[in-house]
Structures are given as structure tokens and as C-alpha cells.
């Protein structure tokens, strides 16, 4: 798993960490059940605050991609090889959707309406 952080970018560092881990789950270089590096270790390696890493991990947890367990740290959710990779790709798709929608100036309501319409069609 490779994590690159651009400290000069406008994208928050925590989001960059989440995106890198998500990408690693999606392309299979991190497998379901694998343990992510401890937040303290990763923070030290990347030269960021530990809370920045934890914010990234928290985001992945909200997306259902990892589980945070006391004592065991962050573990990639094990719902089968394909399911875990598929979910990571799906969340990536959602990120792209949001970025595109923002670029078009759509409001949150409009985006949700679009998705709802898409869901009702299938």
C-alpha cells in the first residue's frame, strides 16, 4: 500500500490518507482482514499530526471500509475479497460523483434527488 500526501494541496490531509487507503483496498493491495498501520506510526512516517490520520481512518470507518477496534487498531472490513474491493470502488465512485456535482454547482439536495431518481429507475 502506497500513501502519498501533498502537503501543498487544497484537499485536506485526512481525506488524502483516506483516498490512498481506499484505493489500496480497491486495487487489492490491501486485503480484507489486513491491519492498517497504527495511527501513531503512520503519523510519524508522513510527518502529520496523529489526529489527521485518525480523521482519515474515521472517514473510512463511516464508509464501512474499515473497522476500528480498541487494542487491534484499524482492520479492513472482511466481507469477502470481492465485496470489500467492490465497496471500495463504489465509494470511490461516490467521491467522483460529489466532485463532479460540486463542479457543476449542484446543491446537496439536487445530488440526492439525482441519485434517488437513478435508484427508482432500476
Amino acid at each position: 500500500m502506497l500513501i502519498r500526501l501533498d502537503h501543498g494541496s487544497s484537499v485536506p490531509l485526512g481525506d488524502q490518507i483516506a483516498a490512498a487507503v481506499r484505493g489500496a483496498i480497491a486495487d487489492g493491495s490491501v486485503r480484507p482482514g489486513d491491519r492498517l498501520p497504527a495511527a501513531r506510526t503512520l503519523a510519524d512516517s508522513l510527518g502529520v499530526n496523529i489526529h489527521t490520520v485518525l480523521r482519515g481512518y474515521q472517514r473510512l470507518r463511516t464508509e464501512g471500509l474499515i473497522e476500528l477496534r480498541r487494542g487491534r487498531g484499524a482492520v479492513v472490513t472482511d466481507s469477502g475479497d470481492e465485496a470489500s474491493r467492490g465497496r471500495a470502488r463504489l465509494v470511490e465512485g461516490v467521491r467522483h460523483l460529489v466532485v463532479d456535482a460540486r463542479a457543476l454547482g449542484l446543491t446537496d439536495e439536487e445530488v440526492i434527488d439525482l441519485v434517488r431518481t437513478g435508484l427508482s429507475r432500476t
Binding site: 500500500m1 502506497l2 500513501i3 502519498r4 500526501l5 501533498d6 502537503h7 501543498g8 493491495s29 489486513d34 491491519r35 498501520p37 503512520l42 512516517s45 508522513l46 510527518g47 502529520v48
Partner: peptide, 13 residues
């Protein structure tokens, strides 16, 4: 190629 202001981390178990 690492840009100035970029940090990176690689790990594999």
C-alpha cells in the same frame, strides 16, 4: 518523483 512538500509511505505485510 516526489514533489517538494510531498511525503509518502509504503507498507506491505
Amino acid at each position: 518523483l516526489l514533489h517538494p512538500g510531498e511525503t509518502a509511505f509504503w507498507t506491505h505485510a
